[in-house]
Amino acid sequence: MQTATWQAKELTPGQLAQRAGVSVSALHFYEREGLITARRTSGNQRRYPRETLRRVAFIRISQRVGIPLAEIRHALDNLPDGRTPTRRDWEALSTAWQADLDERIEQLIRLRDNLTGCIGCGCLSLGTCKLVNAHDHLGDQGPGARVLDVHPVEACHQPEQACAIASAETS
């Protein structure tokens, strides 16, 4: 594969993928999702503006910290003229995402500290589930783990004593 020179204004999918550290199929996925754009040559080959490198880096970092693609797309769509995010843009977005990221961190810490004892749905805690989830009250809230939610007591419909047990186990 031919490596792009630093002054190249456009990159082929292979060149962009190599420089950005992603697969070509990831670039095609980002394009289908409306996160990046390419022009087509007369031979119908994709060419990406060089600035797409920074845009892909922004997408990858956002994904790495757990930001959903829909939120990343929304953030990119709100930039003037669909331009590549600048340092100032990243600072504004990271500030806006701070509370959500703090909540995710809290959730991960809770999960790490309590994973071996209970994941909240009973499959690993059948011996203690009757105390924490009497009469399967957590099941009324829908599928999946509930005990390790960030705000388990707020969402708890159990008797007060059982909520206290669930809260104590998750803190």
Rank of each mutant, 00 (worst) to 15 (best):
W90T: 14
D89P: 03
G122V: 03
S125G: 14
C123G: 01
C123V: 07
G122E: 11
E103C: 09
C121N: 13
T86K: 02
E103D: 11
T116E: 12
R87F: 14
C123H: 05
A92N: 08
S125I: 03
L115C: 06
C118H: 05
C121T: 08
L101W: 15
E91F: 01
R88S: 15
C123I: 15
C118F: 11
L79G: 00
A99C: 07
D100N: 15
S94C: 07
A99Y: 05
T86M: 02
N78S: 15
W97P: 10
G117V: 11
W90G: 01
D113K: 13
R87S: 14
E106V: 08
W97N: 05
A96L: 14
T86P: 02
S125F: 10
T84S: 08
D100K: 12
A92F: 00
L108I: 12
G117R: 08
S94H: 07
R87N: 06
D113F: 06
D102K: 15
T84C: 14
G82I: 03
E103R: 11
T116Y: 07
Q98E: 14
T86N: 04
G117M: 09
N78D: 13
D81T: 03
E106A: 15
N78V: 01
T95F: 00
G117L: 10
W90E: 15
S94Q: 15
R112P: 00
T86D: 00
N114E: 05
R104N: 06
Q107I: 04
S125E: 12
L93A: 05
T116Q: 11
G122I: 05
L93R: 02
W97L: 13
T116C: 10
G117Y: 09
T116W: 11
G82V: 02
A96Y: 05
